[in-house]
């Protein structure tokens, strides 16, 4: 059923190899951006975790003063 539906779609919406290539590049770009966001989140949370632990031990605020 799906194969038939897809086949009909492809028939009605033919795409060139160039268009398919552009779609693929966009997916990779999205993945790289996601990876960058994940890394950034790791960096931020890593610093915050250390700050949180030190604050628990000796007192301190979570924000303000040093950058994270």
């Amino acid at each position: 059923m799906f194969g038939t539906g897809l086949g009909r779609y492809a028939q009605n919406n033919p795409r060139s190899g160039k268009e398919r290539m552009e779609e693929k590049m966009t997916l990779i770009q999205k993945r790289i951006i996601t990876l960058a966001i994940v890394i950034l989140a790791g960096i931020v949370l890593g610093r915050l975790a250390v700050r949180a632990v030190l604050n628990l031990l000796v007192g301190g605020s979570m924000f303000g003063g040093n950058f994270l």
């Binding site: 030190l54 604050n55 000796v58 301190g60 924000f63 303000g64 003063g65």
Partner: peptide, 9 residues
């Protein structure tokens, strides 16, 4: 203003 005993922040 943001630090505890370690003057860490």
């Amino acid at each position: 203003p943001h630090s505890g005993h370690g003057l860490q922040n």
